[in-house]
Design a binder for these strands. Structure first.
Lengths: 339, 339
DNA sequence: TTGAAAGCGCTAACAC
DNA sequence: GTGTTAGCGCTTTCAA
């Protein structure tokens, strides 16, 4: 099967290939009759545009590079899903890269994007990213860039993130409003911004409602379900008094839930539990788990829209970074509803 | 910032651009000294290869098109994660497309892949796909194609799928071996191959172990968690006797679990429950849910490897489709362990 | 409304 | 070991 090019169509119709090119691109200066003839011949010959050639010549690829730590994390695969939807609806395709939280792979991915001359990049940085050279390179090359979820503040780049502080505040506020007074918070032992923000929200909510901030009620660790269990066990050993638990993640919250049930603690009568992330299982467990939704699909869509906006603005030389901060959503379920 | 090409490097070094091209591609006929000089100059000028130009000339893009129904389904995002890992390790990048189970979008995606001259395509068809023309077109164009999970048998194309029959058999066999005798199976009311296969495995396992196949114990419906609950409620109303439930999906199984607990039925003493898919929440609920693991990451990796193999075979004209069928893994947890 | 011509940046066959 | 040359298939400017 021979490759069909615009030249073949041109020969068939006794016009030049540039007329064919124009007709296929719906150029206004081409007569309707010619367009029709070209389209029919293209169809008949089973012609298919070569985007590579088109990109080389025009300088546009209609491809957007998307780099995430890992698709195995539901949060990111959801965001990518949202990105793909919007980008595809606007004629762009997605070149996908997983960094696996490795700085080396991240650099390699961005290098590939740049070599592939993508029309824009959407990125969520790795936890290892301390060296920003890859991203500086993107900026230097004037390739539109938007961060989502994990951004680099110093670079003054457009981004879409979620207000984790507000999420922490809202979760805590909800527990307080339900009448809980001694709220245990499980947070991470590593310095990760989003978790620190949730903690800050927790503390501020307590203060706002005039409740004491008790350091004994702030527990740090890896945030596995197992750790959730450990926290509850140790709290019992120490005779720690608490009537609610706000865990930084739904998975941690599940560990808490299980251990409390093992101790025959009534949820939410004696102790309330709320998680974070709105994982799919939250509504399937007993009692159903209250949580904070992070609006993943929306984040992807907003990030994509922001990039598209940036690409338009390029033309008019406007270059003010826009930082969209999404509000997390409180999802109240049985595990924390006592009123 | 001016665009740097191999010509700029050539000028700096007083060699021709083809020497530069060879040096950058590590051509054996270029002296080490020249290579070094070229690399240093490239670095200094911040040169970056233009993959578009390279692809146009060479006919290779190093891009693989991947089309899935939706990344919001954990199963698919996991598989894509596996695909990306292997492909990236072999120098390929992923162009990603979501069909959203729509035939129109599927066609559009494949059209884009073909126009982008991808070096291969990995696809999981939509539930709507009855017209195979898009895939026939891929084959006609001699673009290597591998199906994963959802394949089109008639096309005689390489594929990686999971043995759902065996999954159904294994789940049922496990329950029988644990001493359960009246096993309720929840399946789909729509004609979906994988679910029919699981059902077939269920039936064969019963027969193999000399147990009667009772139509009353096979319940069809949408397979939401809600439906799982409904099944248990109705079984009670009808005084249906059963001592185990094999649900076609973990989500359905969760509904079953919850309703049984609401009825104070002891799991697994009175009734065992097993699901399918090994969703992340299975080990977090009480009791932990037994299930069948579908080896998603492995499926992605195998599909990627198969495509790579196909691309090599292309050269030697071998073209026998290879159909890899992965064995599902039985994961025994508390919900079905009574021995 | 259409044609002519240049060239995007690279690869690769052939030459020396 | 390096240079010469011819495109890959398209977009786009200028001309008619």
């Amino acid at each position: 099967m021979k490759k069909v090019t615009i030249l073949d169509i041109a020969k068939e119709l006794n016009v030049t290939f540039s007329t064919v090119a124009r007709a296929l691109n719906d150029h206004p200066a081409i007569s309707a009759a010619t367009k029709k003839a070209v389209r029919e011949t293209a169809e008949r010959l089973n012609y298919r545009q070569n985007k590579i050639a088109s990109s080389l010549r025009s300088g546009r690829t209609n491809v957007i590079g998307v780099i995430v730590p890992s698709l195995r994390v539901t949060f990111f695969s959801s965001v990518v899903s949202g990105i793909e939807q919007v980008m595809n609806a606007n004629g762009y395709n997605i070149l996908l890269y997983q960094s696996n939280e490795s700085l080396v792979k991240e650099k390699k991915g961005i290098e590939t994007f740049l070599q592939s001359r993508v029309d824009g990049i959407l990125a969520s940085i790795t936890t290892e990213t301390t060296d920003y050279s890859s991203y500086e390179e993107i900026i230097k090359r004037k390739t539109p860039l938007v961060f989502f979820d994990r951004a680099i503040d110093q670079l003054n780049i457009s981004s879409v993130t979620i207000n984790d502080y507000k999420g922490g505040f809202t979760a805590t506020e909800h527990l307080i409003q339900q009448g809980y007074k001694r709220i245990l918070h499980i947070t991470a032992d590593r310095e990760i911004l989003i978790f620190r923000e949730r903690l800050r929200g927790y503390i501020d909510a307590l203060r706002y409602y005039g409740l004491p901030v008790d350091d004994d009620l702030i527990v740090k660790g890896d945030f596995s379900p197992e750790f959730g269990k450990t926290v509850i066990k140790e709290a019992r050993l120490k005779n720690l008094e608490y009537d609610a638990v706000f865990a930084l993640e739904d998975f941690t919250a599940m560990g808490v839930l299980q251990q409390l049930q093992e101790f025959n603690v009534k949820i939410p009568e004696e102790v309330a539990v709320i998680g974070f992330a709105n994982e799919s299982f939250g509504s399937l467990v007993t009692p159903q788990l209250s949580t904070i939704d992070q609006q993943t699909i929306l984040m992807g869509k907003e990030a994509a829209k922001l990039l598209l906006k940036l690409k338009k603005a390029e033309l008019t030389q406007e270059e003010k970074p826009e930082k969209i901060v999404l509000d997390p959503l409180l999802i109240v379920r049985a595990s924390s509803r006592r009123k």
